[in-house]
Amino acid sequence: MATKILIADDEPNILLSLEFLMKKQGYHVLIARDGGEAYELIVAEKPDVLLLDVMMPRMNGYELCQFVKTTEGYKHARVVFLSAKSKEADVQKGYDAGADLYLPKPFSTRELVAKVGELTTP
């Protein structure tokens, strides 16, 4: 079964590119346009990888990450933050919330694909 990957961002054009990119890699792609949708999809689909924006309406990336990392049955999920917040403190906050990777925007698609590949390799 293909690895489930959830992409959550409130920028439609970023979703557009990431959806294309990840589908190309053969992942099963889920799309969320804000934190709330993302949460519902996580609970319903238990994705393996989360690509999360930090600042989103209704629920932010940190909260989603914390939920996944502390809730039984979801802990296996790997979390990658993709955020325009690039300050040291913001990055640290992401890792503190339990992220596996924090990539500041604008990121390199090649690097993202490679890192996600690493994370999904057992």
Binding site: N13, L16, S17, A84, K85, K105, F107
Partner: peptide
Amino acid sequence: LATITHEIRSPITSIRALSEILFDD
């Protein structure tokens, strides 16, 4: 400043991602 940076980064991210896709694929 932080907000502007953020606001500028979003379109750049899209442009970069899309152009990289087109360039690589």
